[in-house]
Design a protein around this nucleic acid. Structure first.
Lengths: 186, 186
DNA sequence: TTTTCATGAGACATTAATGTCTCATTTGTT
DNA sequence: AACAAATGAGACATTAATGTCTCATGAAAA
């Protein structure tokens, strides 16, 4: 069984932390423990304090995102196609992606260094897609990146609030990104 | 003199809080006081604790955004045109808009009620713009709203990190929103 | 069944954040 | 200059968050 019906305490904490901290970054460890359905002491048994929890979350988020992106990009016919395929995968991991982005600003150098690999890979993919005509040289790569990130996050919000399925939301994000809101439809 | 060169202590705190909390929502009141160049006691003289500060900030952000939007929409030839004009105004108040959006989730009913007016006005503007052809009925209004919000926030990030001027960023956001990344240029 | 182990609950200590007060200093006003 | 108001700095009290420990319980493994 690769998928135990009940998460381990450790995983339950991590999952609850992703969900809770996304809605309220000031949530206390006690809040997280409650949300995870776990005793406060248990949380401390698994994690060496808030910083440690955040580090573990960052590492896990980073791994999940990279794996999902790699898997999704299999058999893509172009860089643009890869980006489109990746979009749907990332939408479903919106809370992970968001968490990582937030950590970038605040956190220590370790996290920044660890995810800079991922970030650079994305950066390269974007520049490659730009050469294929996704966007012109007049458009700063920074803009393309940040706009894409936030549209993907928007899509995840649609899923989270049950306004769309992951597929629908990913379609909305991609069509809006490539052709604008006028061509967007779920 | 309508524009004192030096901000009052109260305003300095509010301004610093907008900037700091945007980068790190867990910042303490002590952090905010330091960032404002103000004694910690002074902060407490002006605000009745963290909640009070947040309430004041929400009220001010709400007011600034509404005023800026009203002013920007003057003389607009259509709802779409109004939206375009408003975009540049809001980009420059990106931290305010972001703060309000975050509060929506967390905060008490008062804030939600207060900004729901503003939100409804926006909602109406979007639906009116939709009838003018900004986007089709196949596109959920929720998506248009959240995508617009996050693109405007992305634009503000470009300004904040000095990757673009407010005008350039607003142009990028609007052209991406209406026609996609392919037509975006600063 | 017996043993082992993770856990929940709660007591307790420590630390960080917050709130209050005083006093000397500064700033602005008259 | 004389005065009043605002402030900064720091001491202190209170409260919230965090970290540690013990013990009883229940589940899983032997």
């Amino acid at each position: 069984m690769k998928k135990p019906i009940k998460l381990s305490s450790r995983d339950a904490v991590i999952e609850a932390a992703f969900q809770l901290l996304n809605r309220d970054p000031t949530a206390s460890l006690a809040d997280i423990a409650v949300a995870a359905g776990v005793g406060r002491a248990t949380l401390h048994r698994h994690f060496d304090g808030r910083d440690d929890l955040l580090r573990v979350m960052a590492a896990q988020a980073s791994g999940e995102l990279e794996r999902a992106a790699d898997l999704a990009a299999r058999g893509a016919r172009s860089n643009i196609d890869a980006l489109r395929k990746i979009t749907e995968a990332i939408v479903q991991l919106g809370d992970r992606q968001w968490f990582l982005a937030q950590e970038q600003h605040t956190a220590a150098d370790e996290v920044a260094a660890g995810s800079s690999t991922q970030n650079n890979a994305f950066h390269k993919l974007f520049k490659a897609a730009a050469k294929e005509g996704l966007f012109s040289g007049d458009c700063p790569v920074e803009w393309a990146l940040v706009a894409y990130d936030h549209l993907v996050y928007s899509a995840w919000l649609m899923v989270r609030d049950e306004h769309a399925t992951p597929q629908q939301a990913a379609n909305l994000a991609w069509s809006t990104f490539t052709n604008g809101i006028g061509s967007a439809q779920s």
